[in-house]
Amino acid sequence: MNGTEQVIQRLAQDADVVRPLRTPWIRTGIWLSLSIPYVAIVLLAMAMRNGLPTLPLDTRFIIETVSGLGVGITAALCAFSSVVPAYSRRLFVVFAIFAGLWLGSIGQNCIQEWLRNGSQALSLSHDLSCLPFITLVSIYPAMALISMLRRGAPLTPHLTAAAGAIAAAGLANFALRIVFPEDANIGLLVWHIGGVFILAALTAAVGHWLLNWRFVAHASKNISR
């Protein structure tokens, strides 16, 4: 009996019942249902400390906030779809549209703010504290997402990890905008959006450590037991 035949026999003996993975849409819903209560608790704690914010319900703010949330949700969808072999990559186009809308709306607000307030609008120091806040708020959603992604196939670990980080940080950024609904300026562009993409780049760099075939084999062994 050759090696491949032995492998086949061993695997066939290990044919336990496995539940097919739910669709990326449902898994994104599950992830949101796990993450939103945590983010809400943090928001509540912040609101209790700083007082309830008055949300500027103008179109500009709504477009920016909703597109930011859209970036987070579509990034999660992309991450979940990227661990399913042969799943359509069309969701990445939807993600790119939301990302463009988000960047565009903040960019436009920055220009308007600059025209209104001159060089004052170019200050970076004001929003410096946002980066640690985004990191703190996104830790739990990121951990939940990574543990869910490990049940899939790590076909593109760097891309999946980057999408996962954008999802978690995007959600945190959305929370931050609700707590601090001030006008968009260059600081917001650098520390909020820059922060989200810095976290994504760092996570992507260690993607192959977070998601690899060893973890999947281990998880599958535990599930079948």
Binding site: L11, D14, L21, A153, W213, I223
Partner: peptide, 12 residues
């Protein structure tokens, strides 16, 4: 084959 076995739950 081992990889397919590990991720057979991803087949819809």
């Amino acid at each position: 084959l081992l990889s397919v076995h590990s991720v057979r739950s991803t087949y819809n």
